[in-house]
């Protein structure tokens, strides 16, 4: 199993000299299982464009599976530029959590609506399929390839994915707030909740269930790619934005027995130099644990 990072940024793509090393494209991670195995892709931020170019060089028939965590722009905005959609040798299956009133096919169609983008669904020559799953559902996407899911704490609900293949496993968990102060789902929260105030016991219990499910999903995974957009201070200021800090991610690793944490969904305003500091701080924090920590960098890969 090989994890390839095509886009590692959150919120908005950030080109420029200050992001050349870590990368400025929005979220997209590829999981390579082998030359004749299906191609797994997690999220379709702008990073998916270059992945598409790499794939479109291939002339054999490609079985591509795109797992969407949620449809905020930074997770889907690269889709119209994904070359394999326009290739007849490709078969592409989209996955997302079932959202009432928002069929996945409609969401994908509205991303390429004429008012936003000049090419339409009629230009797509790949065979397209949509799969919507229920919360916490597991399914198979090929022989010996198992995908499991769990809900995250993010506005309009994102979900984490786990892939198990030949005794190797990875979890992709972005975007999420820690499961401590506020439940994020359908409502817009305009003001930051005060994190020093006690949490309503009922909400606390629901958050604990959510966290428990995520920890079960991550159990003994080889790698956990996790939302670490915030520092602790940034989280305390904006607990309602649905993002975490490295300390939250580390706690999940420790409780679930994950050995390698990959920091992901980097804040758009962080320069390469600032990222170095954030990573050094996280490595320092992790030195008291058995968890190895690194930050996702565009163009880099991890071989398991």
């Amino acid at each position: 199993m090989k994890l390839v990072f095509w886009g590692v940024r959150g919120s908005i793509p950030v080109p420029g000299p200050h992001t050349v090393r870590y990368g400025g494209n929005t979220s997209c991670v590829q999981v390579e299982l082998g030359p004749s195995e299906p191609i797994l892709i997690f999220d379709a931020g702008t990073g998916i464009r270059e992945l598409g170019q790499a794939l479109s060089a291939r002339t054999d028939s490609l079985d591509i599976h795109i797992f969407i965590t949620h449809a905020h722009w930074d997770h889907i905005q690269g889709l119209p530029f994904f070359d394999p959609l326009f290739k007849s040798n490709c078969s592409i299956t989209f996955y997302s959590l079932k959202r009432r009133g928002h069929a996945l096919s409609d969401v994908v169609n509205s991303v390429i609506e004429t008012r936003y983008f000049p090419l339409s669904r009629a230009d797509w020559e790949a065979r397209i399929r949509f799969v919507e799953f229920e919360n916490e559902e597991s399914f198979s996407v090929g022989s010996g390839i198992s995908v499991s899911t769990s809900r995250l704490n993010h506005p309009w609900i994102a979900n984490a994915y786990r892939v198990d293949y030949q005794n190797k496993s990875m979890v992709y968990a972005t975007d999420t707030a820690p499961f401590e102060h506020v439940i994020l789902d359908w409502d817009f929260i305009s003001r930051a909740p005060d994190v020093s105030q006690p949490v309503d016991p009922q909400i606390k219990e629901q958050l604990q269930v959510m966290r428990h499910n995520l920890i079960s999903l991550c159990k003994d995974a080889d790698v956990l790619i996790y939302d670490t957009m915030f520092t602790d201070e940034q989280y305390a200021r904006n607990p309602h934005w649905g993002h975490s800090a490295p300390s939250h991610a580390l706690a999940v690793c420790e409780e679930s027995g994950v050995r390698h944490l990959v920091m992901f969904h980097h804040a758009p305003e962080r320069s390469d130099e600032e990222m170095d500091i954030l990573v050094a701080d996280a490595v320092e924090l992790a030195s008291k644990t058995n968890v190895k920590i690194s930050a996702a960098q565009e163009g880099h890969s991890i071989l398991l």
Binding site: P13, V14, P15, G16, G24, T46, Q77, F81
Partner: peptide, 18 residues
């Protein structure tokens, strides 16, 4: 200065990728 899609990376640092 870009059309279509932002292009981060070393190839666009001089003219820009936004």
């Amino acid at each position: 200065v870009r059309g279509f899609i932002p292009v981060p990376g070393a190839q666009s640092v001089r003219y820009g990728g936004n």
